[in-house]
Design a protein around this nucleic acid. Structure first.
Lengths: 143, 143
DNA sequence: TGGATATAGTTGTATAATACAATTACTCAA
DNA sequence: TTGAGTAATTGTATTATACAACTATATCCA
């Protein structure tokens, strides 16, 4: 294995996380944070789910997922309905308001990425997306 | 611009940050955290620096950099010497102990990445490192 | 030259995201 | 029918961060 590439990935990954933390830290006024965004994305993609499922999909502790879901419910972005089969459990479902907010937030993110990457070639963007996906899969599989 | 690639990057980036947060969150016993690691890296690469410089290089608030530097000084990983030219300021320098810890932490990270990426081709690893670097530069320039 | 302004660093305080532990209410199987 | 297991919530602690107030020093200019 080429050690130089490995070192580059290792370093740039640390820097990337630092930068993204900086960017997403200051936004006090934003209606959605990254965690909420991914949670809504899950519900939007896969329909209803309970806290346990959400936590496992997002690789969060159940308690964290529970608080996030409760926060989103408070804002009216998700609806919580009791599971009549299993009275311990609930179904969470994204609301129309939640869908709207989620789509607006997503569009804002897309705009930001679009500006960041507007000088890249189509090849580079495609390759980057593909490799990021592959990397995330590797994490899922191996950690 | 190919919208599909953009959407892929946007989504995978959110997932990546989530995964990395999960990975780095639980490590109570680790001697270094990511922030400290980057700070030591700066001092290791560029020699001495004051808090203000470190903060600006890491894109942290000065107060945060100050606390991190103080924490590292407490552990004996950096040495703080007064700047005799400007008595408001100090020079921070990595110690031998700090260098050792930093190198061990770095090696542990490299091992982890090595395992994650061991099924990738050299081309993929090189390309990923290069694109990550390019992305970080874009963030630096445009945000 | 001395007072106003700027700067390096520290410390107080607040916030956000998280994990772990304890608890509650319920389910299920022996 | 009771005891082990489970879904969710809530209490508590930790960590990383930013912003604001402050201290000590430096610099600038009238």
């Amino acid at each position: 294995m080429n050690e130089k590439s490995l070192e580059m990935i290792e370093l740039e990954m640390a820097v990337l996380v630092r930068r993204i933390t900086t960017i997403t830290a200051g936004k006090r006024n934003a209606k959605l944070d990254r965690a909420a965004y991914l949670l809504l994305q899950q519900l939007s993609d896969n329909g209803t789910a309970g806290v346990k499922t959400l936590a496992s999909e997002l690789q969060l502790d159940i308690s964290t997922a529970s608080r996030q879901a409760a926060a989103l419910e408070g804002k009216g972005y998700v609806k919580k309905t009791p599971n009549t089969q299993d009275k311990r459990a609930y179904f969470y479902q994204i609301t129309e308001l939640g869908t709207n907010e989620w789509m607006m937030y997503k569009q804002a993110r897309l705009d930001k990425f679009s500006k960041l990457l507007n000088e890249w070639s189509d090849d580079e963007r495609e390759s980057f997306g593909h490799l990021l996906h592959k990397f995330n899969q590797a994490i899922n599989k191996k950690m």
